Simulated assay, not measured.
Amino acid sequence: MPSILITAGDPSGDHQAARLITALRARRPDLEFWGPAGPACEQAGARVTANLARLSAIGAFDVLPHLPEARRILLDTQQQASAAPPDLAVLVDCGAFNLRLAPHLKALGIPRLGYFPPGSWSGSLRRAEAVAQAYSAVATPFPQALDAYDKLGLPATLVGHPLVDELADLAAARREVPLDPPVIALLPGSRGHEIRQMLRPMLEAARILRADWPHLRAVVSRAPTAPAKLFDQLLAEAGLEVEVVAGSRAAMAQATAGLIKSGTVTLEAALLGLPHVCLYRVSLLAYVVAWTYVWPKPEFWAMPNVLLGRMAVPQRFQFKVTGPELARTLAPLLTDSPERRQQAADLAEAVERLGGPGATERAADVVLAMLDGA
């Protein structure tokens, strides 16, 4: 029975890895999947050796408490691969883990496919070099890094993004959302440090906007992993009437526009045609460290902007993440304004660059081709 080691280090990666497992098992029921991943992969039929997705975090300081456990999972996976080498390794995103695991697999002669390879969204040559050294080939949803991979001699296949399929029905339904009364989606993220930094200014912006639009509704996305006590405390402090829904898509489905934390969710907003402002804020210590050591600074980090290579979606970072600034920036997107129409056109253009439906099946094609050639 062919064996595939699969890794997924955050909930999003776990979800996409599970979709890939499901597609592969439908075509090759004899395949066995195992490795550190998350509950979605386990539900799809993989033998999950450790819950790597649980350790997901953004920022050096947030991940520090989990380093010993992450190292243990890495060493265990290396030992398991040495004892029973898989026919292929599919390493999903999670560069912090996979770029450390891949050299060990390479030494064992195991082919390594990077799915959602680290940094592929940015097109960074430096990141592409690390990927090229670690992986045998990549299947990427983003076109930005293809030139870099080609220069480095790394076989790369542009498969498109699975979200195109996932959100097709919701995108069609969202076209019927009226402009009046305005509804704003507040998406502060799913992790404690994100909610702590961004929910309060989002709620303040909603309060300011309600002065001009008394019937404005604010819909707050509450992820299943969001710390309940912190979330409830911030809502109580705001004293603002809001509607809390489970998950970002439930909020975006009914919204006129949104205040959205940076990340994959801005790509979902683009696919849904939802005009929005993208924001991110970290602790002061994390900001000082990042400003000192992270270079070059990315100009674009909202995913639609990255895809287009221009500022289509307003970005607000750190000291500009305030209630008044967010309210001022979002206000034009709540009416049939030139700003709203322009962003809608830009989002549609960004979506075109993600490719058509069938991304997961195309990724499965790459996996099977590598498996047959192993």
Rank of each mutant, 00 (worst) to 15 (best):
S3I: 06
H15M: 08
R19K: 15
I21F: 06
I21E: 13
A23C: 10
A23Q: 13
A26R: 15
P29G: 01
L31M: 04
L31Q: 13
E32L: 12
F33E: 04
F33W: 09
P39I: 05
A40E: 15
G45W: 07
R47F: 14
T49F: 09
T49Y: 13
A50Y: 03
A57H: 12
F61P: 04
L64C: 01
H66T: 01
D76F: 02
Q79N: 08
A81V: 13
S82N: 10
S82L: 09
L88V: 01
L88D: 02
V90S: 07
V92T: 15
A102M: 13
P103N: 10
K106A: 15
A107V: 05
G109D: 12
R112C: 04
S120H: 15
R127L: 12
A128W: 06
Q133E: 14
A137H: 02
P141W: 08
Y149K: 04
Y149A: 03
G153P: 13
V164R: 14
L167S: 10
L167W: 11
A168D: 13
A173K: 15
P182M: 00
A185P: 11
G189M: 10
R191T: 04
H193A: 12
H193Q: 14
E194S: 09
R196V: 04
L199K: 02
A206N: 11
I208D: 10
P214K: 01
H215C: 09
V220D: 13
V220N: 10
V220H: 05
P227T: 03
F231D: 02
L240T: 13
S248C: 10
A250H: 14
A251I: 10
A253Q: 06
T256P: 02
G263W: 10
E268Y: 00
A269D: 11
A269R: 06
L274I: 06
P275D: 00
H276P: 09
A286K: 11
Y287D: 06
T292R: 14
Y293P: 00
V294G: 05
P296W: 09
A302Y: 07
G309L: 06
V313R: 00
R316P: 00
F317P: 04
Q318P: 12
F319Y: 13
L326F: 00
A327L: 01
T329S: 04
A331N: 12
E339P: 07
Q342S: 13
A344G: 04
D346V: 02
A348I: 12
E352F: 01
L354W: 07
P357C: 02
A363D: 07
A363T: 15
V366P: 11
V367K: 04
L368Y: 10
L371D: 12
A374S: 15
